[in-house]
Amino acid sequence: MSDNLMLENAALQVEEALPESMNPVEPFLRSERIPHIWCPGCGIGTTVNCFARAVMDSKLDPNKIAVVSGIGCSGRVAGYVNLDSFHTTHGRAIPFATGLKLANPELTVVVYSGDGDLASIGGNHLIHAARRNLDIKVICVNNLIYAMTGGQSAATTPESCTTATSPYGTFEPTLNLPHLLEAAGATFIARWTTYHVMQLAKTMKEALLHKGFSFIEIISPCPTLFQRRNQMGDGLETMKFYKEHGKTKHGADTASLDMTKSGDIIIGKFVEKKDRPEYIDHMREYYTQKLGRPFEYQVKTC
């Protein structure tokens, strides 16, 4: 056997062996697109890992899951997941997802984006999607900053933090997203940090299977632009911070979830309601009643 052939055989053996040694989440990733763009210590990749596990555990057909992202570091998630995926415009992932879900209610539609995208430029859509209780699952990676544009302050940046656009520190009040979402009518609301990966994956699975508007806030580090500028250490130190300061309080009053620069982060599943009808279910029932005959909802005609 020539050396070349031996090498080829060896390569083949390695390939055959791969499925067993392959990371179990790999089928859910577009591995040809790796390496990803996220910085060392960034938490977004961790959340994607949790998401992949949640998809697996949910037993949903991956061909029937679509991921919609906006713009920003977290907005790049759509590009890495091996699912139907849509990288939309800044702030508009939710209305895109609204159209997608209404056209094909069979799809599990996941909006995966960041705090600036979802809560600032897209804040109006977030509120109204929660109000409608349309069955889409919003995963909000909250790194407390505008990262992709270079670390400017966000509506979520806690007071007294230094950012590119707040060199003297932030003084504006911040948004408490779970509280906002509960007021607007979301029926599934949770918050974890990127340290709490088991809990996060479990909650993501529950959200995937929940019928109605679901919102998961994930507190995630941006070591490059947030932690560094605020002398909060690297990614590892942030994990320690999350471990020490993450206080699990399931069912906590969402009004109590404000975050500060160095205080505790209350985490857990805060809201899970089944008493509000989901948008499409409600529409079907409503029109059936109004029309006096079954409402044959069929928007997908192509």
């Binding site: 209305p95 094909n104 192509c302």
Partner: peptide, 16 residues
């Protein structure tokens, strides 16, 4: 803004 992209989500879901 929402209307003009919701319609595009619907297209990719199979609607006109």
């Amino acid at each position: 803004l929402a209307a003009s992209i919701a319609l595009q989500g619907a297209v990719w879901g199979g609607a006109k």
